[in-house]
Nucleic acid binder design. Structure first.
Lengths: 132, 132
DNA sequence: GCATATCATACTGATTTAGTATACATTGCG
DNA sequence: CGCAATGTATACTAAATCAGTATGATATGC
């Protein structure tokens, strides 16, 4: 339905909060959950995906938490979306060539691919600094 | 997941075929299903939505079928998407103000709204003539 | 009258997604 | 050391969405 999953939505909220964390400090899931009234259990899975994608880094222990792995200006909304949902793919045929039996005589694929590319590009033009 | 439903995909295929129907002629669901190997039952629901949105018009009877309600240049991909899925809404808060309890202290809404608008605008820039 | 269209509604099964539960591992600090 | 706070991992459940099907009604041309 051309909509971002709630996980991605929450991920953006979380990352937005991280852009405000001072250098050297960190933000724990519990603390962010308290601020945002989102489920901390749910946020955990999201944070881990962000970590695996290299957007945030984490430290364990009682004073630990998450912080951006690099300055906010170096990441874009596209990075966050891709970390949670995988590559933008408006239709199946864009991401999985051969998945559609009708592909060889399909007249819309070219246009759809172009739209897909433009949407990804659009997301790439929004750096995380805009979320602050 | 930022993806179009299969219904929308099929709707675009169908509309693309309609752009090639000569003035005065029409294309039946059955005939199009034969060409495209898509389910004709499934296509029916889609065609009806397109009709309700004024994109296509229909005539019943044995020589009936569908045709574009106006020239292809006057419709865009956005019209088709909206006919099937409703207004583009990247997150809930864009289409239903008040649905999110966190809305008043949300830091991402502004950016997300902008992205939403840009995506809709992008789709509006693709006339159906490009599907031919 | 019959074949071929569109139109309307309802149902089912599969897939995805949100959200929860539980256990484990690491770190800081008294 | 021992405890509390943190992240990490996996598995599960319930709700929502979506694809696809079935059936019947209504209109039209020949």
């Amino acid at each position: 339905m051309l909509t971002l999953s709630r996980q991605t939505d929450y991920a953006l909220q979380f990352v937005a909060a991280l852009t405000r964390v001072p250098e050297g400090a960190s933000l724990s899931i519990r603390e962010f959950a308290r601020q945002s009234t989102l489920s901390s259990l749910f946020l955990q899975r999201i944070a881990i995906r962000l970590k695996r994608s290299g957007i945030v880094s984490a430290t364990k222990g009682s004073t630990g938490g998450y912080r951006l792995a690099r300055p906010a200006a170096e990441f874009t909304v596209q990075d966050v979306v891709e970390a949670i949902e995988g590559p933008v793919s408006v239709t199946l045929c864009v991401s999985k060539p051969g998945a559609c039996a009708f592909e060889h005589k399909c007249r819309t694929k070219k246009v759809v691919s172009k739209i897909n590319y433009q949407i990804a590009q659009l997301l790439r033009n929004v750096p995380l600094t805009e979320l602050t």
